[in-house]
């Protein structure tokens, strides 16, 4: 029964990890930058949402503001910093995103301080309780919502990439930047758009976990590591690999927590990705062909 309960609790957690990995993979696949500042960029925008919430008291407005600011932040990062340095080596881009990570952390500390701030849950109420014979399975309502949002967002983005004109342009740019330019796609615009969408996803994840972790400058640190892990597990080659990887990760984490000790959750998960990277760097669902979004 513990297994089932762990799985049920692991799914919402995993959906968030997956969404995080999804955003990172989206940027990586299309623009070619592994964004190590992904979590912290989201964190800053969650703080913005929090400020809006304290000022107006409206949750919907604050979430909207957070996501819009996240989109703008992504566009600014691309236009001002990452766009002009596409020629740089991987190591160079890596260091720049690490620098961004530090700057975001410092900026949040400077503006909002290091205190833990509370953010309300989106859905409150009695958790869903299922009875299986003598055992009870518990699913908190908010977790249900998180799972639903994560699934919805990934489906929307999948549809967007599949059918929307800009989505097709994004895929074209990922497959072949020069070819995309030849057929008249403004790749710079597409890059900015991808950055914007990626960071907004990170903001969304931040807002969804905020009730649990509280809002503080380090709130997304582990989340980002889980996001990378999800990406590695599922393979950065395919976006849905990241979602699936995230789900596996979430369930695995809860199982480790239930059967070994919660203290070892993170380290065991991390050791798994190191092994995964060593054995199959393309991930569980990775394909040989590259260039798909």
């Amino acid at each position: 029964m513990l297994v089932l309960q762990s799985i049920i609790l692991g799914i919402p957690q995993g959906a968030l990890y997956g969404l995080m990995g999804f955003g990172i993979a989206l940027i990586f696949r299309s623009v070619g930058t592994m964004n190590f500042a992904h979590g912290n960029a989201g964190m800053v925008c969650v703080f913005v949402a929090f400020s809006v919430f304290t000022a107006t008291g409206s949750i919907i407005l604050s979430i909207l503001c957070g996501i819009i600011v996240g989109f703008l932040l992504g566009v600014i990062i691309d236009k001002a910093l990452m766009g002009p340095i596409k020629h740089l080596s991987h190591a160079g881009m890596l260091m720049i995103t690490l620098g961004l990570l530090m700057i975001f952390e410092g900026a949040a500390q400077l503006i909002w301080g290091t205190d833990y701030q509370q953010f309300p849950e989106l859905l409150r109420g009695e958790p869903l309780i299922m009875r299986l014979g003598e055992n009870k399975l518990i699913m908190p309502l908010n977790d249900l919502l998180i799972t639903a949002v994560a699934v919805a967002v990934s489906i929307i983005i999948a549809l967007y990439l599949k059918y929307a004109k800009l989505g097709i342009a994004t895929r074209a740019r990922a497959q072949d930047p020069i070819g995309a330019k030849v057929v008249g796609i403004d790749t710079n615009m597409v890059d900015s758009l991808v950055w914007g969408i990626g960071i907004s996803i990170s903001v969304l994840v931040g807002i969804l976990i905020a009730p649990k972790t509280y809002i503080h400058p380090g709130m997304m640190g582990n989340m980002q590591i889980y996001g990378f892990t999800a990406g590695v597990l599922g393979g950065f080659e395919s976006l849905f690999g990241a979602i699936a990887g995230g789900l596996i990760l979430g369930i695995l984490e809860k199982l480790v927590g239930a059967y070994i000790s919660p203290d070892y959750q993170l380290s065991i998960v991390l050791i798994i990705i190191i092994i995964m990277l060593a054995v199959k760097p393309s991930g569980l669902f990775g394909k040989k062909s590259s260039g798909r979004v």
Binding site: F36, I225, V232, S267, L277
Partner: peptide, 19 residues
């Protein structure tokens, strides 16, 4: 591993040891 993947692996390693 190379580039970004190596960075992820070493980052994971560093955090894992710390944890």
């Amino acid at each position: 591993l190379k580039g970004f993947y190596l960075a992820i692996a070493t980052m994971a390693f560093g955090v894992a040891i710390q944890q």
